[in-house]
């Protein structure tokens, strides 16, 4: 599979991390997906997606200090890498090419 092709969940996860800026970690990413994307998610799938994106170099992660509020466990903060931005851009471009000219059929509720 092409390095830059994104599955749908990965796409949304990257966008969430981007939106959250510096404060992106598990809890907030999940919340962002639920609130903004209105996409109820499989929690496990999100973590797996984060890990994969990290492995592919589209995300960068860093462990922070443990806090008592988390029962003595550390947070992992994520941020989008340049490659990640590139992947998002090319994905968006691809979609826009496919969307071109389709507004009216969709607007009138065309083929299923």
């Amino acid at each position: 599979m092409n390095k830059d092709t994104l599955a749908q969940l990965e796409h949304l996860v990257l966008l969430s991390v981007l939106r959250l800026g510096k404060a992106a970690y598990g809890v907030l990413i999940l919340k962002e997906l639920a609130d903004t994307a209105h996409r109820p998610t499989n929690r496990a799938a999100v973590y797996v997606a984060l890990r994969r994106l990290d492995e592919r170099g589209l995300l960068r992660s860093k462990l922070a200090e443990p806090t008592a509020r988390r029962g003595g466990r550390a947070k992992r903060f994520y941020s989008v890498t340049a490659d990640g931005i590139e992947a998002l851009r090319s994905q968006q471009a691809m979609l826009q090419r496919m969307w071109a000219g389709l507004e009216s059929p969709l607007g009138s509720g065309g083929m299923p």
């Binding site: 970690y25 598990g26 973590y47 443990p66 988390r70 029962g71 466990r73 947070k75 992992r76």
Partner: peptide
């Protein structure tokens, strides 16, 4: 840490 801490 990440997963369990988030749950917690």
């Amino acid at each position: 840490d990440e997963v369990l801490g988030d749950l917690y």
